[in-house]
Write a protein that binds this DNA or RNA. Structure first.
Lengths: 346, 346
DNA sequence: CTGTTAGCGCTTTCAA
DNA sequence: TTGAAAGCGCTAACAG
């Protein structure tokens, strides 16, 4: 109860003094640099333990002069989630990059694998690392593997490129997100048998496909009354989504529930409204597009990933790869958040 | 598309050179310190704008030698959420405190206002700031006001002390959390009229009371079929909660839904199981106690606040108060997260 | 293999 | 009112 304040943390200088070596030698040991006699290493490590030394990351970053340039590749289009991600990446490069990362944010056509692949190649030629929203396609995979083989770390963001040599994937577990959508819609839809419509950007996007897989799986396990009947591709664009959904609604019975696994929820909502369909609806991401829809009740819930966290995580992971630092998998896990009107951030 | 890399950020030295003043003067202007001629201020500010200077916070923290000691006060008891918070505070003091904050974490009896009040007084005497899990009580309020008047910043954490002179409250909006609970239970409970049991630590805890208020309010607005019939105080302890809930269940009809607004959910679940009651249940916080209950289906959902975020936010806010920095209200807002088995972090 | 020295960008005396 | 200089904790040449 009456423990007192902890002492000031020891510095590397204290460690050096304690081990009776110079600052430089202590530094070598602490940073596992070569050229130190084993006996000396032991002494320094003992001092580190004895004093409870912890490297001051800020000071280290300041002293280390090298800085890196890298490129982030985001999909083109009018998707506000992506806009937000772009801003967050710029901010994160400054903060998490400790001012040592010079990150250029570019756009590439998301639904065209060749264009993304060549953007990755260009990025690899210019910078020392790449962050990219992935696409599950052989050309893209090849471009990533080429960069990886050349020693450039590639971090996939939001959507992974499975099987590629990317250093890390930063984003939610999309299968799990699909399961969450099923759990919510299963409870929100009226009781009794019903059919479900799923809207997604494209089946070639691994994140959307994973969501669909998880969704179907959980629906089958826990809500066998509901079955996916329509799968509509809207190319993450509100207008195209509206047209595609409207076409489906005109021809068949009304769905009991709708899962928007990609972007373009406002188009979906418009199509539902136009045909007077009353279904439980769950969509993804909190943006200027989806926020009013959740508040008005047009959407029943939103499944979101925090673009700020994702951007910071991507930058941290990239910096770790660039500087040889460690990443704690655990800390970099991106949460799947559920938003109702009641817990919508201001 | 082909924008190039941004240049390295200018340093204060660049600003000084540009304004034709010394480093010290540039520093004075940038940090709004007195003793600079207005004309000089203008010149330096112009240079700052011209070069787009941004202070390097890490370097500033390194150069600034002063450090602070402060005390954090958490409730005694066996609540695992609080244990976690304690650990996170220690970690946050190091990271967010930029090694300039020496934070002692202490425990005080939560259900005894006098004891918390005197712990606050003691903390104020020893340190230069206080972080405390609050309690809505005149004695506690008086202790906080005394500290505030003496110029010590007090930050309330998780539970506020309304009307007090605390500098900041860090935690979720508990009314909104109660509304979320209502939205979930309203959908999860079987359709039709039913009665609800609410378990909380004590009605004298403002966070629990706020949750109850929000819960009732939202239930009344949106699920008039459901009404709160029992309010049970369990003192945030699993055993006491079990006994209290069991006593209620023995005497009346079974509740259709149960909201555990405080801690001790495992006791609640045990009481429900013992009496064979099948109700929809929502509880708070992800801990070693609640995690298995959510996975087993004993709990239908969890409403959580991230103790890591909260600890870091509390430390940031305290440091800002201590060093005269600014806090962005917006960034310090703590989210109300909803956890289902599907989006449970590993 | 080990030590000395000069900074990183900023703050803080101390002197002018 | 201003400036010169030392130094925060660490890293990176360059010697020895």
């Amino acid at each position: 109860m009456s423990e007192t304040f902890s002492p000031v943390l020891p510095t590397l200088r204290d460690v050096a003094r304690h081990a009776e070596v110079s600052l430089a030698t202590a530094d070598r040991v602490v940073n596992r640099r070569p050229g130190v006699r084993p006996a000396t290493i032991k002494r320094v490590e003992a001092a580190v333990r004895a004093l409870g030394f912890e490297r001051h990351a800020g000071a280290a970053a300041l002293a280390r002069r090298e800085s890196f340039r890298a490129v982030a590749l985001l999909p083109l289009g009018t998707n506000p989630f992506i806009e937000r991600l772009a801003d967050e990446l710029v901010a994160a490069a400054r903060l998490e990059g400790l001012r040592r990362l010079d990150l250029a944010v570019r756009r590439a056509e998301r639904f065209d694998p060749e264009s993304l692949a060549s953007a990755i190649r260009a990025a690899a030629a210019e910078g020392r690392g790449v962050i990219a929203v992935g696409l599950d396609d052989p050309a893209v995979l090849a471009a990533i593997d080429a960069a990886a083989e050349a020693g450039l770390p590639v971090v996939t963001l939001v959507s992974d490129v499975p099987g590629s040599g990317r250093r890390h994937y930063v984003g939610i577990d999309n299968r799990a997100a699909g399961r969450v959508a099923a759990s919510l819609l299963g409870r929100f839809a009226k009781a009794g048998p019903g059919e479900v419509l799923v809207l997604l950007g494209s089946l070639s996007l691994s994140d959307h496909r994973d969501r669909l897989d998880g969704f179907r799986e959980a629906l089958g396990e826990r809500f066998p009354d509901l079955a996916v009947r329509w799968i509509v591709e809207g190319h993450d664009d509100a207008e195209r989504a509206e047209a595609a959904v409207a076409a489906v609604l005109r021809t068949g019975p009304a769905p009991a529930a709708v899962y928007s696994a990609g972007a373009g929820a406002s188009g979906l909502v418009a199509a539902l409204a136009a045909t007077g369909v009353e279904a439980a609806v769950v969509a993804h991401e909190l943006t200027c597009e989806t926020r009013p829809l959740l508040l008005s009740g047009a959407l029943d819930a939103l499944i979101v990933q925090d673009p700020g966290h994702e951007a910071r995580s991507a930058v941290r992971v990239l910096m770790a790869a660039l500087t040889g630092g460690a990443v704690s998998e655990d800390q970099e896990r991106i949460r799947i958040e559920i938003l109702l009107p009641d817990n919508l951030p201001k």
